[in-house]
Design a protein around this nucleic acid. Structure first.
Lengths: 118, 118
DNA sequence: CCGGATCCTCTGCGATACTG
DNA sequence: CAGTATCGCAGAGGATCCGG
């Protein structure tokens, strides 16, 4: 198996817990969100995991971090890059496949499903 | 986070090691492959993991298992279902995104990359 | 307020040996 | 041949405390 393979690498980070919810959270409504805003929109995520995922996504070029040092405390804003926005299309493809084959289900109540609410 | 969510569930099994290579292995050339055929085409996979993955894929309806009891020893054939074949399209979408944004690279030598050799 | 650092648990994966 | 059983490790993820 080739570790450098595109597909393998992408599949690797997609599968990590919270990655997709975070991407979609940054896609919805406000384009820029602060760390605490993201955090409060997820029940159960720990600061460490959120930090890790944001860092991974930043490293992979899907998320951009901007800091506002003018104020105290420093405010950190996270948003999707162009690359990250384009990834939404991929997520939609996955979703379409899932719905087509009745794999799992989309929550009937959109508000309760942060993933499917595209 | 909604555990039943389509996207989350799919992302969950995509990300598991060997899942995608196995799907693609069953896609290439011979449509039906025996357990040992799959195994020998991957260096490094253990029988336990291969069993687990095949069972997961079967449970998710992407892979179909057929047994030939007429002969001894029993021969087990694995192949993609219609649903599984349709999933190849999703994998291709992921690949396209990756190549478009130069995320990782496709192995220059196709023989060494079981993933990208679509 | 935004995280970093630590500690701990749990499971995914691998190696090896064994069985119907 | 087609798996299962057992063991062990490393890394992911969670809980909690700490610092700029």
């Amino acid at each position: 198996m080739n570790e450098d393979c595109v597909i393998y690498k992408i599949a690797g980070f997609i599968g990590k817990k919270w990655t997709i919810p975070i991407i979609l959270e940054l896609y919805k409504k406000k384009p820029k969100k602060r760390y605490s805003e993201i955090k409060k929109n997820f029940s159960g995520i720990t600061p460490k995991i959120l930090s890790m995922r944001l860092k991974e996504l930043e490293k992979n070029g899907l998320v951009k971090k901007e800091m506002d040092i003018s104020s105290v405390p420093v405010k950190c804003y996270y948003s999707l890059t162009e690359r990250g926005l384009d990834f939404i299309r991929v997520i939609n493809q996955i979703k379409k496949w899932g719905l087509k084959w009745n794999y799992g289900r989309c929550s009937s109540n959109a508000k309760s499903c942060k993933n499917c609410d595209l």
